[in-house]
Design a protein around this nucleic acid. Sequence first.
DNA 1: TCTGGGGTCCTAGGACCC
DNA 2: TCTGGGGTCCTAGGACCC
Length: 423
Amino acid sequence: MANQSPLPAVLGSDTLVHVFDEPTILHADLDAFYASVEQMLDPRLRGRPILVGGGIVVAASYEARRFGVRAPMPVRDALALCPDAIVVDGHFDQYLELSSRVMEILESVTPVVEQISVDEAFLDVAGSVHLLGRPSEMARVLRRRVREEVGLPLSIGIASTKFLAKIASARAKPDGLLVVPPGREFEFLHPLPVEAMWGVGRVTSRKLRRLGIETVADLAALGPDVLVPVLGPHAAHHLTSLARNRDPRPVHGGRRAGSVGSQTALGRGLTSVEEMRVVVLGIADRVGRRLRAKGRMGSKLTLRARFPGPRSVSRSCSLPGPTASTATLYEIGMSLLTRALEASDGEPVTLIGMSVSGLRTDQVLQLALDVDDAVGPGNTKDQKRRLLDSSVDAIRERFGRDLLKLGRSARGDDSFRRLSEKS
DNA sequence: TCTGGGGTCCTAGGACCC
DNA sequence: TCTGGGGTCCTAGGACCC
């Protein structure tokens, strides 16, 4: 049932005109994702106000939102608003697992799926209408399948641009579907408050309101010139264009993350460098593992330290070569932390974060990492030799001998010297 | 009001090269 | 050696999103 694709009843020209008349950009957004997952996993939580999180609310179910609870908000404040709320720890592994199952379902109607976070994605179904029918029909099928096969509510907005589709899905919640018909975009868009716009947060909202801009219509009427001195050229033109319903951004299928990072909050904070060393090592290990799991390497490292106040300082540097090595991230991360601490007056550090960007996938370098792993302390001499030999063979087989040199220079360390000497 | 962990994108100054 | 102009890379920080 759920796998059947709806087809237009008649494939005549009238039907096709109608089919192509609907906009083709979908924004699919799981409702109160984390909280919905908790309710699905534990039936006792269904229909009840749920808060996911520890110190702060990471997600609140709709039952809790009715009391004014919002994420992120301290759990203490949320309980004051909604004393009956049940606080649950997050099951983050489950969230990722369920998220990828939902994304697979979305990919059943088009390969052009751009995932923008765990719980939302854009789809461009223009290439699928001749096979699957109207976009609104596809949306109905997707919503039903996600509900039946994964057990989660999914809202979808359909419009002619990403920006409008995103706003439409927000207006469709909870558990709804909203199409913005062509020609009626302004009717939908212009009465909205500027805060409804994607890209207008606390700071920009305050600046706009100071100029007397309250609605999207106000923004569209004003034009970019007045905004440039306040928001900078890019933001001014970008927001004005969106308010005038100009959003040419395509849906990027198959896009991958441009950085990988991790951070750890430290409560009241640490002052001892030795304690921070342990934290940095833990973070470097996490980031290194995740990079290796993705088969990727980064060429730039950024370390961020937060101090009470709250004030934060970041220090970054280019790496000697692309890497996913925990040891390298740790060593360079520590030197960046030392530099970051110079900017403080010995205040406690309340958060340490590390992010690797400039990511690339390179098969030669990936094999170099395998070698790195092979020469690590976990292996016996014989195991190391076997792993090294198999890596050398694999590189030769795929790329020929010359690329060994390339790999060595790009790697920036001596893994390959050891290899080359062997061979 | 700074309490979480994961990201994206833009700006601006300085270094460096031609 | 200085002067000028332009381009690009690197780094630090800020705003925003879920």
